[in-house]
């Protein structure tokens, strides 16, 4: 087995038990600044749950999610893309077993809905990047929040206000369903599917925008979403969303696609840089 397989497997299992420091920090500060009684109780339970998961080794949430993966293949990699994809697949298969993940995937979406009993297949996205260090990103995508994700095809002249209104309307409709406080990934531009892909990519990490207007837009969306007072657990209060990230792309003269991917407070993800030493066989 390659070292890489072991590393992906371990990081994915760890993601189901532990949150990134950035996510933890935002949850702690939401608890400290909350003045609504019910929302405070919910945020305290969330922080307790995080400690219990870490102490016992139980998953944070029973919905250990659908594996949403992004394989960013570096053009000068010393291995093939197909080897990288199959190594990732095998690592996920082992993570589901060794991590006691819930088997949440059904093969046929409409009729039999028979469980594959492996938590596979994952959703696999592939993109090409420059250089020789490929990356593998995995989101453990819970579906309480995914069911609140959506795309709107706006008028090309809708502008910034149109984008904000669309997102507010999608978040309002989500209400207390996606286990708020939420983390929001926003994808703008491209086509319907491209915008949706970008909204997931936005959940992976925060981008330093060269165009500061997009950074401002992230801040403004976060501020406006928090005026909805959906709050932790949907019971009111300040903390409806804790972070908004945008990814954007060029689009057609006739359109302005806007996609929203909603993550619950348990924003679980693994990021692996495929350095050469990880590619060696053990």
């Amino acid at each position: 087995m390659r070292k890489l397989e072991e590393v992906i497997k371990n990081k994915v299992i760890e993601a189901s038990r532990k949150l990134d420091e950035n996510v933890l920090e935002k949850l702690r500060s939401a608890y400290e600044s909350e003045d609504d009684k019910n929302a405070g109780i919910v945020l305290k339970a969330i922080l307790d749950n995080i400690s219990i998961a870490s102490e016992t080794g139980l998953p944070l949430c029973q919905d250990t999610g659908l594996f949403w993966t992004l394989i960013s293949y570096a053009k000068s990699s010393p291995y093939s893309l197909s080897d990288l994809v199959s190594t990732t697949y095998e690592a996920l298969e082992k993570a589901a077993v060794e991590g006691f993940f819930r088997k949440s995937i059904v093969a046929d979406p409409v009729f039999e809905r028979v469980n594959t009993k492996t938590n596979l297949p994952p959703v696999v996205n592939i993109e090409l990047i420059d250089g020789d260090v490929s990356t593998v990103d995995v989101l453990l995508k819970g579906f309480g929040s995914e069911n609140c994700s959506a795309v709107r095809m706006l008028n090309p002249t809708a502008g910034k206000d149109g984008v904000i209104d669309a997102i507010l309307s999608m978040v309002r409709e989500a209400g207390g369903k996606p286990c708020p406080p939420m983390f929001l990934g926003v994808g703008i531009g491209g086509s319907l599917d491209r915008a949706a892909f970008l909204s997931k990519k936005a959940l992976i990490r925060k981008r330093e925008h060269e165009d500061w207007r997009y950074t401002d837009l992230e801040d403004e969306i976060l501020e406006r979403v928090n005026t909805l007072h959906i709050g932790a657990g949907g019971l009111g209060g300040r903390a409806t969303a804790l972070e908004v990230n945008i990814e954007y792309d060029s689009t057609h003269i006739a359109g302005l696609p806007v996609a929203l991917s909603v993550s619950c407070w348990a924003d679980r993800k693994a990021h692996i840089e495929v350095r050469e030493e990880l590619w060696r066989e053990d």
């Binding site: 969330i46 749950n49 219990i52 016992t56 139980l58 998953p59 657990g233 949907g234």
Partner: peptide, 13 residues
């Protein structure tokens, strides 16, 4: 009654 969403480890205990 609403249980706390995402708090799977807490409820398991």
């Amino acid at each position: 009654l609403q249980a706390f969403g995402g708090c799977g480890a807490l409820y398991s205990q």
